[in-house]
Write a protein that binds this DNA or RNA. Structure first.
Lengths: 250, 250
DNA sequence: CAACAGCGCTAACATGGGTGAACGATCCTG
DNA sequence: CAGGATCGTTCACCCATGTTAGCGCTGTTG
């Protein structure tokens, strides 16, 4: 089958390390497999399930979340196209949280042996996969800082910044605009506030002329200003090419 | 040199997987090396430094933290004896946060090649190391849930529960007691509240007869009650032997 | 077309937790 | 022994954020 669309995992790993033809082929083979489609608001995997393999998001937005006994829910991470969800997570017996689809999602499930095929293949490939895992760990730590130290406005601004930079790194930003298909309730469950307060803070960011956001269409009117409010620095994303041209989708 | 004290990393990995004599020897060799002592409140590594190797905590408590421009500080994780700090973190060019010593700390720094020696040695060993890394990732996610969804009392109770279970798993609990050598300011920087409010919440937990905590000596007077308040479930720690006898100190 | 659900938005009110300041106890140090 | 630092503790006050309720728009479905 002809590979018209570029393999999103190859693209991701090339951000970290220069991969040889042979290495790229290995990754291609690992990713070759049936794409699975999940409808919006359905789960890819549920807490308590035995993990089957490692989801690689091909299209759409997914998220990890955990629900407390009394129904409160926290979104613990957001996964964009090209994101590998917890490589090696399959060795645990049981999921301690769920992964759901924020939008319609298409993903490939990499089986353990395909993962092993990649991780064992060569030093650069191993390194690239590790780099990816470390970046995710760093992001998760940054969310802890966000929730622990920043106030509501800063927190929201920070999340917008992170999403913007991550989307840009995978070519999903055109000019200063991108899709952010989250509801205000999603943002609330991500930033640990109520939907009502998210609304107040969104209005504030709009009022300051920092963002436009309507019907899922997001525009960073003043990216620098937004970063300032958030005290955002993209270091933790370890984007090699953080400064590269945003409209690089050719 | 005779190994009187058992290798803490071997002990840790044996929690996850049964290791052969040969595998244990490999781990022993990887850990063999000079112990480094850090004084209380000093840093093991600072943000911006190039990581040298992977610290393995032998004794004492360490913590990762990040400081915002305006001085606010968040503790992102706590490392107890036997904890390996971010295996493979050395492949990043630069630390995006710091690691400090809460108490006097003794640690060994595993060089990259020693890490590689272990990770490549055998399937069970690789798996054990992964298991450990995954557990840390899960803990980090749980902290996100804690900060995002639980209120101050629950958050504090949850932290005490986590520390208690983790200490118990490494044999540092006797009966229902253990050392928790944190100041209330440390707890504040961990749970995202002010020291004043930490104090109020500690009093509340004491008042309910759930804990005793004085001069660093902690006692879980009513562990079940504490877990209830916190909505704590130890699942995410993936302790094989969560229920084992607490006073198992040889 | 009617009914309904999801979403953004607003308003009035309630409260959890922050703020700033102070005091005593303990410990270290000169 | 005096002075200073650190830590736990308390208090009075106030603000950021939660709570509850409701409105209107839009899209979906029978």
């Amino acid at each position: 089958m002809p590979n018209t669309a570029p393999n999103p995992l190859v693209a991701r790993l090339c951000r970290y390390v220069r991969l040889s033809e042979a290495e790229q082929t290995v990754v291609d083979k690992a990713v070759a497999g049936p794409e699975i489609a999940v409808r919006q608001r359905r789960d890819l995997i549920r807490e308590g399930d035995r993990p089957r393999g490692v989801p690689l998001i091909v299209e759409g937005w997914a998220f990890r979340y955990k629900t407390l006994e009394d129904g409160r829910r926290q979104i613990m991470s957001i996964h964009l196209p090209g994101d590998l969800c917890d490589i090696h997570g399959y060795i645990l017996d049981e999921m301690d949280h769920s992964i759901g689809a924020l939008t319609p999602v298409r993903y490939v499930e990499l089986s353990p042996d395909r993962i092993d095929m990649m991780t064992g293949y060569s030093i650069p490939l191993t390194r690239a996969l590790w780099w990816d895992a470390l970046t995710k760990a760093a992001t998760s730590r940054e969310w802890i800082v966000n929730l622990g130290q920043r106030d509501a406005l800063e927190r929201l601004a920070h999340l917008f910044c992170e999403l913007f930079f991550r989307l840009r790194a995978v070519g999903l930003v055109a000019g200063h605009s991108c899709d952010i298909p989250l509801t205000q309730t999603d943002l609330a469950e991500t930033t640990g506030m109520t939907p009502v307060h998210v609304n107040r803070m969104v209005q504030e960011l709009r009022g300051r002329g920092l963002i436009r956001w309507k019907g899922g269409e997001f525009e960073a009117l003043d990216l620098e200003g937004l970063c300032d409010v958030a005290m955002f620095s993209p270091d933790y994303l370890h984007l090699d090419q953080a400064g590269r041209s945003p409209d690089h989708d050719g």
